[in-house]
Computed example of a mutant assay.
Amino acid sequence: MTGIDAVTLEKAIVHKVGNPTRGEALQLSPNTLTLNDEIVRGLLTRYFLAPFNEHDVYHFTHISDLELNDVYQYAKKIFDDPGSFQKVAAFLAQLLYQKSTHARVKEGELYVVLFDKLLVEGEEKKALGLFKSETKETFLKVFSHAGGWELAAEDGININKLDKGCLIIRENEAEGYKVLVVDTTNKQNDTQYWISEFLQVQPYTDSYHHTNQALGLCKLFIEKEYAEKFEVSKSDQIDLLNKSMDYFKSKEQFNLQEFADEVIHHPDVVDSFMDYKRHFEANRNYVIDEEFDIHLAAVKKQQKVFKSVLKLDKNFHVYIHGRRDLLERGYDETVGKKYYKLYFDEEA
């Protein structure tokens, strides 16, 4: 997120939230944090806000009525009455404690933070942040002792790694606010309690999310379904990954039929892809339109996880960026090993 240095951290409180199924307690703090040190305040603000992607926007939902979403109601209460901050922050901690029953949910600190002057599309907005720290790291502390230096180990939080976060921007209240979400732990479907159970948010159906979801669909299909159903080589998988990414990088608009014709080609593979798309959408409760404008920020994000590396045992890594026709795969019966033959014009 940009413009962090101009943001004002108005109030913050920390509660300890355990896992009730393991007998861990909920420990509510009686007081808000005293943040007189501007350096600490600045470090906390960056720790909380830096991981968010401002293009990746969600909104609160509920299966029957938005007004029944608890976090949405608590956020509205704090925005309308900042004096209720401490009381409502305790309600939020209690709600999270009730949702923390899965065996993989870790004990951690819940920070509830009120921000002002958050820059959103050129306008300053109020925002409410919910952040959970679950991962502790060991640090070495050097201190003076008896005229020399000593070392001690302390457990603490790495301020460059936010485990879970939610930033509720005071905008679009009737639609469930604009919400930014971070969840770097417990990514398995059965432990998405932060997004699905506690927050109950869904992405806005805009070009960013359509592009992001469509590229995620392509990657999963190629790495799982395509590889399992059609017995293709790793180099064939990489080739299809590259062609998929090239389509999104070279086009301004996505068209499902055009993508199927130009990138996938083979009718059986196309049919399998369409079936996989339907299952993908059902599992995520999100429908990818058959036509949408391609969002470059989403393409850049996904490009980081589209791997074009062919790993051969522990000896070779081959980076394949295109021209699958210049790569030949075979088996040498004399030495009893598989091989790849690469054709090229010049050695750089």
Results as ranks from 00 to 15, higher is better:
Glu252Ser: 11
Ala103Gly: 10
Leu119Gly: 00
Gly122Glu: 06
Ile63Thr: 14
Ala103Asn: 08
Gln202Asn: 06
Leu241Arg: 11
Lys76Met: 07
Glu290Lys: 07
Met245Leu: 15
Glu347Val: 15
Tyr177Val: 07
Met245Ala: 08
Glu231His: 14
Leu49Asp: 02
Val201Cys: 05
Thr45Lys: 03
Phe316Ala: 10
Asp183Asn: 10
Tyr319Asp: 05
Glu10Tyr: 02
Leu118Gly: 11
Gln192Asn: 09
Glu109Met: 14
Ala146Pro: 00
Val179Cys: 03
Asp236Ile: 08
Asp56Cys: 11
Ile78Pro: 14
Cys166Gln: 00
Trp149Tyr: 13
Asn172Gln: 13
Ala89Asn: 05
His265Arg: 05
Glu346Ala: 01
Glu10Leu: 10
Ile238Ala: 11
Phe91Ile: 03
Cys218Ile: 11
Lys251Gln: 09
Val57Lys: 00
Ala227Cys: 06
Lys141Arg: 13
Tyr331His: 07
Asp190Ile: 14
Ser64Gln: 08
Ala214Glu: 09
Ser133Pro: 08
Phe230Cys: 08
Lys161Val: 09
Glu328Leu: 05
Glu225Cys: 10
Tyr226Leu: 12
His317Ser: 12
Asp289His: 09
Arg324Ala: 13
Glu258Ala: 03
Pro82Met: 06
Phe139Ala: 04
Pro30Thr: 10
Gln27Asn: 11
Phe280Tyr: 12
Asn53Thr: 13
Glu231Val: 12
Ala75Pro: 08
Lys178Glu: 14
Phe306Met: 10
Leu167Glu: 00
Gln303Thr: 15
Val88Gln: 03
Glu38Trp: 06
His279Val: 11
Leu220Thr: 15
Arg22Trp: 03
His62Gly: 02
Lys311Trp: 04
Thr101Lys: 06
Gln192Asp: 13
Lys338Cys: 04
His102Ile: 02
Ser100Asn: 08
Lys249Ala: 01
Gly336Glu: 00
Glu328Met: 03
Tyr343Val: 07
Leu92Gln: 09
Gln98Asn: 10
Tyr58Asp: 02
His317Glu: 13
Ser272Ala: 12
Val269Asp: 03
Ser29Gln: 04
His266Pro: 03
Gln98Phe: 02
Gln94Glu: 15
Glu10Gln: 13
Leu312Lys: 04
Lys132Asn: 11
Glu67Lys: 14
Leu217Trp: 01
His321Lys: 09
Leu140Tyr: 10
Gly23Ile: 01
Val71Met: 02
Gln202Phe: 00
Thr61Pro: 07
His265Val: 02
Glu107Met: 13
Thr205Pro: 04
Glu262Asp: 13
Ala227Lys: 15
Ala6Leu: 13
Lys304Arg: 15
Gln257Ser: 06
Lys141Ile: 06
Val182Ser: 09
Phe221Thr: 02
Asp190Met: 11
Arg284Pro: 00
